[in-house]
Simulated scan of single mutants.
Amino acid sequence: MKNALITASTKGMGRAIAIAFAKEGINLAICSRNQADLLAFKDELLALNPAIKVFIAVTDCSIKQQILEFAGAAEQELGFISIIVNNAGMYEYASILDDAEETFAQQINTNLMPAYELYRYFGKTMIAAREGHIFNICSIAAINPIPEAGTYSVTKFALLGLNKVMKLEMQQHGVKVTAIIPGSTLTDSWKGMQVDKDRMILPEDIASAIVNIYKMSAGANVDEIIVTPTFGQI
């Protein structure tokens, strides 16, 4: 049975991806900053598929030590982690010139650092096993920057760059790396805003894409996939 680690897993895309992998019979290591959410979601996943294992850890993904502790505990509990989904992220609606003093560090540490550290932690193990698939949840802002979300755009651009480097480093070892590049997706980032869900990508759409990419043959790697709303960005 395969083991997947998903960051920021109780809401939005992370939640939908965890549910999709549970249905595929894949063991899960999931994290969130809220223990009650994690416990409830673990019960939900096990009810969905009692055959899988679900490891949970309260983790602030913006803190390097906590992300490394989560990785180590997941590996100890489940064994070899062959799937990583770097989903943790934060979105702040502001131009760079209007950023608060701590904004740059916060967004680097949330949108980029966890993917970098998990790659360094698990990468050599994947190389030794000649197996693995890393998914990095980027954003359409990595390709078409959003001036009203300047620092977010910069960090997602950096994550897409990291994805490209990962792909080049891992391809000779048979380890797959895929950038998921969604447009406007119905997640908590839109909380408090008036939006029409029928004009947005749903988290389940991203989860479906990831599972189908994962299930491709050993010789096929999807470098990146762009998913945008049918009617255009919101």
Rank of each mutant, 00 (worst) to 15 (best):
131 E>A: 10
170 M>G: 04
164 K>H: 09
73 A>R: 12
99 D>G: 05
164 K>Y: 06
64 K>Y: 02
99 D>S: 15
36 A>R: 15
94 A>F: 09
60 D>Y: 05
218 A>H: 10
209 A>P: 06
65 Q>H: 08
54 V>L: 11
181 I>D: 02
141 A>Q: 10
8 A>I: 07
100 A>M: 12
83 I>E: 00
102 E>Y: 15
75 E>V: 02
168 L>N: 13
80 F>W: 01
191 K>T: 14
51 A>V: 04
70 F>C: 06
13 M>Y: 04
49 N>A: 04
76 Q>Y: 07
109 N>I: 12
150 G>K: 07
225 I>W: 04
27 N>Q: 10
2 K>P: 10
216 M>I: 06
54 V>C: 06
144 N>D: 13
164 K>T: 04
119 Y>H: 14
34 N>A: 03
104 F>W: 14
233 Q>A: 14
201 I>D: 02
52 I>G: 00
174 G>A: 07
186 L>A: 12
45 L>T: 00
92 E>V: 15
153 S>D: 01
74 A>N: 00
28 L>Q: 01
95 S>N: 13
92 E>M: 12
65 Q>E: 14
94 A>K: 13
116 Y>G: 08
210 I>G: 00
169 E>Q: 11
163 N>R: 03
119 Y>P: 00
95 S>H: 11
130 R>S: 12
204 E>W: 01
